[in-house]
Design a protein around this nucleic acid. Structure first.
Length: 500
RNA sequence: GCCGCUAUCGUCUAGGGGUUAGGACGGAUGGUUCUCAGCCAUCAAACCGGGGUUCGAAUCCCCGUAGCGGUACCA
């Protein structure tokens, strides 16, 4: 293979390379999903590469289980990564705990160039220093006291058995942070302190590994949440000390809860767990559409975006600067929209697992019947899980009559109950005599009865609905009658009458 | 405490020196209908405050205020 590098050739470094770097300390949460989406969209839009890196330097909290949950969540969302994770690639390994030798080499370099030093302070001492600094209203908590330790002092600490951490020496010149979303600003070095970059157990820390890997993996744009904004100058300082190339940064606003606080696994549990949305019957396109609009907008009219449109239209320049509140109502609206886009057949496929989990069906042999049920339910699903309350009575007659519905439609008074009983008895007779149980025949017969006897349609229908389903809401009653079939219907009406 | 970021209807947002400040979710009301959902129609609902700059400020600048984020040998 003949490779003659031509200096005038445009190089691969122009290719966008972005990464999502979760730490596997729990499930993927909704904010993480949005970070992943923005990165992925940015990569797709620019024909770039999307990398999944696992930032698991916190060995104590990282788990394999969590890592796999993150994989499945990302896969469910359809945010496929080109490199990293379980997939490998040319810049691997992509799991930080496997990259320790790489970091060690950089740390050695930092130590040898005098850009880093050992710190022998104990956690207790540090605690004290912090408390004092705070009391003195200092900007920095750590004062850099270990920068110039005599070898005597070091020997003393070593003799005590102290294991040092490594700290980076922060520069004394301003650091320029240029952010694609927030704009650029100069950070006063006086606000920066010598960060710990290697723990006393030898494991490097986030601020070190992150920027090293971004450089090593040729990341061009770091798109992450604003909770990392304060880390950025520290990472830039480390990169400078190491002579590494600094990527472009884009800090995207936080996803907030309804009281305006950052959404977290700890405080919001299932509400933020992407995998829970899958389990509850949300569609990935709805979740994606929803989080895309958190902090990003295209114009003043479009709310619904297909994934392809998102790829085409996504742009960092249209990302806002302020946090966005997570509004489940809007997600629900989007979800029902996307559910309604699905064909009856696809909707049936999606809903079958929910019926099965509920124990309502164990085989799917009556596929046509199931599809007819789904069709009758129509646009009444917000999530697939809603199929249960909407259709339970099709599969079992072991349901209660809803007290509120009973009171309203069957009657609170003795008199009204008698009337209801009479109506149901008449309806029973009509249905017994009806030649066929199709929608049209039943409808004609019932309307004939109500209209000729001057009975309100609503009264008769609701009385019957409760008798057949136990509830006061749901699909067209004629659909229900037809789908339930003659035997079931003729069984349920007498039972209701007896209950009165 | 310190450092930083942000600020348009309840929420997501558009706009941005001169607009009746627009859309969407949610809410309310009416219509359609056997109920619910849907659909249709209508309505309520916002430029954080104060100073500048300007003929004119929600928009630009400054100062407040508030909220949030960070402040770890977490990420």
């Amino acid at each position: 293979m003949n490779e003659t590098p031509n200096t005038s050739t445009v190089v691969v470094t122009d290719t966008v390379r972005v990464r999502m770097a979760p730490s596997p300390t729990g499930f993927l949460h909704i904010g993480g999903a949005r970070t992943a989406l923005f990165n992925w969209l940015f990569a797709k839009h620019h024909n770039g590469t999307f990398i999944l890196r696992i930032d698991d330097t916190d060995m104590a909290r990282s788990t394999d289980e969590s890592m796999h949950e993150i994989y499945t969540a990302l896969q469910w969302l359809g945010l496929a990564w080109d490199e990293g994770g379980d997939k490998g690639g040319p810049y691997g390994p992509y799991v930080q705990s496997e990259r320790k030798p790489i970091y060690d080499a950089y740390v050695t370099q930092l130590l040898e160039t005098g850009n880093a030093y050992h710190c022998y302070c104990t956690p207790e001492e540090l605690e004290e220093i912090r408390a004092q600094a705070r009391a003195d209203k200092q900007t920095r908590s750590y004062d850099g006291r270990c920068r110039e330790l005599t070898s005597e002092a070091v020997n003393g600490f070593t003799a005590e058995g102290r294991k040092p951490t490594v700290r980076i020496k922060m520069p004394d010149t301003p650091i320029l942070v240029d952010d694609l979303v927030l704009g650029s600003r100069n950070i006063d070095p006086a606000t920066l302190e010598d960060e710990v970059i290697v723990r006393s157990n030898g494991m490097p820390n986030y601020n070190l590994t992150s920027i090293i890997d971004d450089a090593e993996m040729q990341i061009t744009h770091v798109i992450r949440g604003t909770e990392h904004l304060n880390n950025t100058p520290k990472q830039i300082a480390i990169a400078h000390a190491l002579g590494l190339e600094v990527p472009q940064f884009a800090h995207i606003p936080l996803v907030l809860d309804s009281s305006g606080r950052k959404m977290s696994k700890r405080h919001h549990g299932d509400l933020v767990a992407v995998n829970r949305y899958r389990e509850q019957g949300y569609l990935p396109e709805a979740v994606l559409n929803f989080v895309a609009r958190l902090g990003w907008s295209y114009d003043d009219k479009q709310e619904i975006f297909s994934v392809d449109e998102l790829i085409e239209k996504f742009d960092l320049e249209r990302v806002g600067k302020s946090g966005s509140v997570f509004d489940i109502k809007k997600l629900e609206w989007l979800n029902s929209h996307y559910i309604n886009q699905l064909s009856i057949s696809a909707r049936t496929d999606a809903v079958i697992p929910f019926w099965q989990a509920e124990g309502l069906i164990n085989s799917i042999e009556k596929r046509d019947w199931l599809e007819n049920i789904v069709e009758a339910v129509g646009e009444r699903l917000t999530t697939f899980q809603d199929i249960i309350p909407q259709t339970r009575y099709f599969f079992t007659d072991a349901f209660e009559y809803e007290p509120k519905a009973v009171k309203k439609w069957w009657g609170g008074s003795e008199e009204k109950r008698e009337k209801t009983s009479e109506i149901l008895t008449n309806l029973l007779q009509i249905l017994e005599e009806v030649p066929s149980f199709d929608v049209e025949t039943v409808e004609t017969a019932i309307w004939k009865y109500t209209d000729e006897n001057d009975i309100k349609r609503v009264a008769a229908m609701q009385a019957l609905r409760i008798a057949l389903t136990g509830t006061s809401f749901g699909p067209s009653l004629f659909d229900i009658v037809a789908l339930l079939g003659r035997d079931e219907v003729l069984k349920r009406i007498p039972r209701a009458i007896a209950h009165l």
